[in-house]
């Protein structure tokens, strides 16, 4: 909980990141930045997937279509927020010379994406069978 509060404080007081520890090798910071951008792209892909479900599956029942679409959009938004949080935490860990933070987010994300994909396959197949 304490760790969460301190990382929340860093979100709103960005200058603190540069006050901590020593500046790491610029290549490490750039690698961290690329990882951040990869997460942003993942978030954008999820948001795009949310649009795609809504636009390209018009025959789906309203509740399913909106539900899946909103689920993908929500996961995309979470992914974007988490990208910033993880980038800040990695940058701080490098500055302080600590180990990089470990996280179960990738595992949870892949489970969620797998679940949405499975639901979508089942719903689309079921929808065809009904017609």
């Amino acid at each position: 909980m304490n760790g969460f509060l301190s990382s929340l404080r860093l979100w709103f007081a960005p200058a603190r990141v540069r006050d901590e520890g020593e500046t790491p090798d610029y290549r490490f910071s750039l690698a961290n930045e690329r990882t951040f951008l990869a997460w942003v792209r993942t978030a954008l892909a999820l948001v795009g997937g949310g649009f795609a479900v809504d636009q390209f599956l018009p025959d789906l029942r309203w509740a399913w279509r909106i539900g899946l679409s909103l689920a993908l959009l929500a996961v995309g938004a979470m992914c974007a927020l988490r990208a910033v949080n993880h980038w800040v935490r990695c940058e701080l860990a490098m500055r302080r010379g600590e180990d990089l933070p470990v996280t179960r987010f990738p595992a949870l994300l892949s489970l969620a994406v797998g679940a949405v994909a499975l639901i979508m396959v089942v719903v689309v197949l079921f929808g065809w069978a009904e017609q």
Partner: peptide
Amino acid sequence: VMSVRAAWSAA
């Protein structure tokens, strides 16, 4: 290093 503001803007 990228500024925190840039990271927030992208997100």
